[in-house]
Write a protein that binds this DNA or RNA. Structure first.
Length: 584
DNA sequence: TAGAATTGTCATAAG
DNA sequence: GACTTATGACAATTC
């Protein structure tokens, strides 16, 4: 229904306009005072439109009262043992102290010396060892070793990540101490049984490999194996109860908080949760973000679009797209293109802000919500506000909007009446002021066209003022809607980001556990290798060397040496100091 | 009736 | 400098 049709309105309206206009002039109504006085008049006009016959008394006493009355415009699949028995040492697990098979005992030649074993394999083994050494460089804390070393000797690999149901978690035992206990196990390698063995008198260095060996990469650098396998007494501090304190290559990978996380993740996974759910579960235990990530209630769970990226295009495109079609200013989504309040009927096509199309706009109409349209959105069902206060008071007088069926069946009068009820205040004002074009045009036309339009009509100051206000308010209304949608979208994106980060965290946690597992396996291999090599060594008398007096050392040139323990210890200390010095 | 939610509006800053 | 856009704040209204 075009506004032009109103040009043929009753003469009473014209008189009213004249009165209003004259009043503006009399009052010196400039732009600055227009908001108040003009609004009052607009209220009066609206009142008049509503009540019709009351206009006669408008200029009289009723005007004041009327003015008084209307002035109010205005994440992992691993399980971890909770307790860490004094056990531990993978060395012991991998290398039983008592027994070397007779075959081995009789074999006085080390594989290294005999060459019966592939040099490549040995190299690989040493490389593995070096890898572990590198791991020591990591800032690790002993608590991680508790997990890794916790597996029962019988099944060191397969069970060390499972939490035995009957295994009590001793909260009173510090993780650090537990890990130390683990280290003590390493020295079972050098048990009295072994030490009681005849010790070679020779204190000379026994090269185990040719110095020109190429099988061992020289880039390994000099490495003292004792750092890994020797008793802590030799390395420094000792703990009587918990065992010697050796730098634990795995310590610190898992601190207590990490243990909690992993345990929680395990729990969640055991419960059948996916990593995300696990994360959420975790969050329930540790939630201080204040952000609710309950996707079941979050619009983000329904949306799939990018979000903020779309927001950048909103402002620049808004005016052009909107202005290009003033009559159908609403785009598919978003608040862009202004549409007057009276265009509620066009909601099927119109949803929103210009150029700004966040996903949620598909289900979250920012204004003029039709509760029926929200029914498909459970979490929005509670949103069914009928904000009709923006309508003219006259529109509020009557009851609810007629159902669509009524519109179809109803007469033109009913349609007109319905449309009238849908009109915004500005539209009512424009109507009252006989603005000869639609609010859509007023709001959405580009400046040039807008000015051109204005020039086509002989408009009074009051009309021009109202038109400018309508344009300003209309644009600001769209801007506000866009702004709110953008804000909402930002929140949704942030929630999505948090979920993604939690997913990443869970994944990294799983990878970490896998890494620790493989590291532990590697360490066990190295320990076995060391034990095997050392056990095969024999002095001139054919007797094995005492682990308490000798140690194997990997030299920088690729050779493996059997050196006196004291020397090994010294080198070990030097090795330890280097990293510390670097830190300084 | 209090409070949350929604929307329009104003003021202001910035482009 | 006019115009547009973005946004915080406030008020009105509904539920």
């Amino acid at each position: 229904m075009g506004w032009e049709s109103h040009l043929t309105a009753a003469s009473a309206d014209i008189d009213l306009i004249d009165i209003l206009w004259r009043q503006d002039i009399d009052l010196g109504a400039g732009r600055e005072v227009f908001d108040y006085s003009h609004r009052q008049k607009e209220q009066d006009v609206e009142k008049e439109l509503r009540d019709g016959g009351e206009q006669d008394t408008w200029a009289g006493e009723g005007a004041e009262a009327l003015a008084r009355n209307l002035l109010v415009d205005g994440e992992t699949g691993e399980s971890f043992p909770a307790q860490f028995p004094a056990d531990i040492s993978s060395i012991t697990e991998a290398v039983p102290t008592e027994s070397e098979p007779p075959a081995l005992q009789n074999n006085l030649l080390s594989p290294l010396l005999t060459g019966t074993e592939s040099p490549f394999d040995l190299e690989q083994q040493w490389q593995d060892l070096m890898s572990i050494m590198e791991m020591q460089a990591m800032e690790v804390n002993t608590s991680a070793s508790e997990i890794l070393y916790n597996a029962p000797p019988g099944d060191p690999l397969s069970t060390n990540y499972s939490l035995a149901p009957n295994t009590p978690i001793n909260q009173n035992v510090s993780l650090h101490q537990a890990s130390l206990g683990g280290c003590s196990q390493d020295f079972l390698l050098f048990s009295p049984e072994v030490e009681s063995l005849p010790v070679a008198s020779s204190s000379t260095l026994l090269p185990l490999a040719p110095s020109n060996s190429t099988s061992l990469n020289s880039t390994f650098g000099s490495t003292n194996l004792t750092g890994l396998f020797f008793p802590p007494q030799l390395n420094g501090t000792a703990n009587d109860t918990a065992g010697p304190e050796l730098p634990d290559p795995l310590g610190g990978l898992l601190d207590e908080a990490m243990l909690d996380e992993i345990s929680l993740m395990d729990l969640a996974i055991e419960e059948g949760f996916n990593p995300v759910q696990a994360s959420q579960l975790e969050e329930e235990f540790d939630s201080d973000s204040g952000l609710s990530l309950d996707s079941s209630h979050s619009p983000s769970s329904l949306s799939s679009s990018e979000g903020s990226s779309s927001s950048s295009s909103s402002s620049s495109s808004s005016s052009s797209s909107a202005s290009s079609s003033a009559s159908s200013s609403f785009s598919e989504e978003g608040a862009v293109g202004y549409s007057s309040d009276s265009e509620t009927l066009d909601l099927e096509e119109a949803e929103g802000a210009v150029g700004y199309q966040p996903e949620y706009s598909k289900f979250c109409r920012m204004s003029y919500q039709d509760p029926a349209q929200l029914s498909c959105l459970p979490y929005l069902e509670h949103v069914g506000h009928n904000h009709t206060y923006n309508m003219a008071p006259s529109a509020l007088d009557s009851a609810d909007l007629p159902p669509p069926s009524a519109l179809k069946k109803g007469s033109k009068e009913k349609q007109a009446d319905f449309l009238d009820k849908q009109m915004s205040r500005d539209e009512h004002r424009a109507r009252a002021m006989k603005i000869p074009f639609t609010n859509d045009k007023i709001i959405n036309l580009p400046v040039e066209e807008f000015n051109e339009l204005l020039s086509k009509y002989q408009l009074s100051e009051a009309q021009l003022s109202l038109i400018r206000d309508i344009r300003r308010r209309g644009k600001n209304k769209m801007a506000a809607q866009n702004c709110r949608k953008r804000k909402l979208d930002t929140i949704l994106n942030l929630e999505r980001d948090v979920e993604d980060l939690q997913r990443d965290k869970a994944r990294l946690l799983r990878e970490k556990v896998e890494f620790l597992r493989s590291l532990r396996q590697m360490k066990q291999k190295v320990q076995s290798l060391y034990q095997e090599v050392f056990g095969r060594l024999r002095d001139e008398n054919g007797r094995p060397y005492s682990p308490s007096q000798y140690a194997l050392q990997y030299a920088g040139d690729g050779s493996v040496l059997l050196i006196p323990r004291t020397m090994a210890d010294q080198q070990a200390r030097r090795q330890e100091r280097k990293p510390k010095d670097r830190r300084k």
